[in-house]
Every structure is written in C-alpha cells, then in structure tokens.
C-alpha cells in the first residue's frame, strides 16, 4: 500500500473552499428550517383541522421522500413549472435543504411543545393571557429548551445531507472532493481527507450543542 497524501496537499485550499460552502448551505438551511419549523409546528397543533392537515402534509412529504428527489424537484422541476430557463444551483440547494430541514424541525418543536404539561397553558390562560401570549411567554421558552439536543442532531444530519447537493454540481465539500479525486487519481486519500473535514465540522457542532445545553440547563428549572 502506497499512500501519497502530499499529492492532494496542494488541493487542500480547494477542499476548504468546499467546506466553507457546506457550512454556509447548512447554516442557511437550518436557519430557514427553524423559522419554517416553528411556524409549521404551531399550525400542526392547531385545533382547526384544515390547518393542521396542511401542516401534516408538508411534514410528511419532506420527511417521507428522499432528499435527493427533492433537490432534483427544485433544481429541474420548479423552473419547468414556472417557465424559467433555470434556477441558480445555490438557490435550489438552499431551498431544498431548508424546506427539508423545516419538516424535521417542525416535528422537533411539536414534540417539545407537547412535552410541556398542559397545566402550564391553563395557568397562563387563567390569568387572562391570550393563546399567542401564553405560547410565547410560557410554553415556547420551555419547549425550546427541551428541543436543543434534537435540534443539534438535526444540524449535524443537515450538514451531512448537504453533501447530496453535489448532484447539482454545487461546489461544496463533497463536490470539491470529487473534482480533486478526478484530477489526481487518488480517491482514497482525497475522500479520507473529505471525511475528516466533515468529522471536524460535526464534532464542532456537537461540542457547541453540549455547551448550549450546559448554559440553558445550568440549574434545571423544569419541574
């Protein structure tokens, strides 16, 4: 066995560029996903059936179909539907990842909200607060706290899944790896390095999440 890491060393900046795009895609996707997820989780628990059904259809669609199909749908399908020539790869990638993440985050928030004892909502309502006030000041702060660990997992999953947008040639880490491997004919060294870069990123995120858990759980205020 004859490994030649020095051959791909000069391509490291290219891979780091890719890693940077991976981080950007993931951060955007999770940010969009969190906003959508919060909104959809609130619709999902609505007593008004058409609203909660619509939310459920969204969630089921994005969780129940492959992300790869969703990426193709946005990159190739949506421009056709709207009669456009094409859509930017970045735009399609971020939208697909963001909507996919939104479905998972919606479920995280929904179960977070439902884990809060219903006496909390009742106590708030009995003081004359409206439903949105009770949600905002009483239920959601507690639900958010219990959602931090699964949100961290979602962040990590999204970072790894973002490698799928390489199929629409977005030059993120995976796609950069393929380019390098093709140029130097050293797939093993290249993809080991790519894997290590992913590992560094996921480990950093999980460290950060444990830190958040410590900060928010300093003295556990839950009853």
């Amino acid at each position: 066995m004859d490994l030649k890491f020095e051959l791909i060393w000069s391509y490291l900046p290219l891979l780091l560029e890719g890693a940077k795009l991976t981080v950007q895609l993931t951060v955007f996707a999770v940010a969009i996903g969190t906003v959508i997820g919060l909104f959809v989780s609130l619709l999902r628990i609505s007593n008004f059936k058409p609203v909660s059904w619509a939310a459920k259809i969204y969630v089921d669609f994005f969780r129940g179909t492959p992300l790869l199909v969703q990426i193709f749908l946005f990159y190739y399908g949506v421009p056709q539907l709207l009669g456009l020539d094409s859509m930017s790869r970045h735009m399609a990638g971020i939208i697909a990842l963001g909507l996919n993440s939104g479905a998972y985050v919606a479920e995280i928030f929904r179960s977070g909200i439902q884990s809060i004892h219903k006496g909390q909502m009742e106590a708030a309502r009995s003081l004359g607060m409206t439903y949105p006030q009770a949600m905002r000041y009483v239920v959601l702060p507690q639900a958010f706290k219990v959602s931090i660990p699964p949100l961290g997992n979602e962040f990590i999953a999204m970072l790894k899944d973002s490698s799928l947008v390489s199929v629409i040639s977005l030059p993120e880490l995976m796609q950069s790896g393929r380019m390098v491997a093709n140029r130097v004919y050293r797939p093993f060294e290249t993809f080991i390095l790519v894997a290590l870069l992913y590992l560094v990123m996921t480990t950093t995120i999980s460290q950060f999440v444990s830190y958040l858990e410590r900060v928010f759980g300093k003295d556990d205020h839950s009853q």
């Binding site: 006496g119 909390q120 106590a123 003081l127 004359g128 507690q142 839950s222």
Partner: peptide, 20 residues
Amino acid sequence: INLVRQEVGMVFQRFNLFPH
C-alpha cells in the same frame, strides 16, 4: 373570555408555576 379571566383568578392543585 380573556377579559373575564382577568377578573376570575384560579389556583390549581399542582400549582402550575412557570418553572423557567
């Protein structure tokens, strides 16, 4: 009902204080 509830206080068996 929110206006009515401002006039009618309620205390629960299990307290239901806001833990956060």
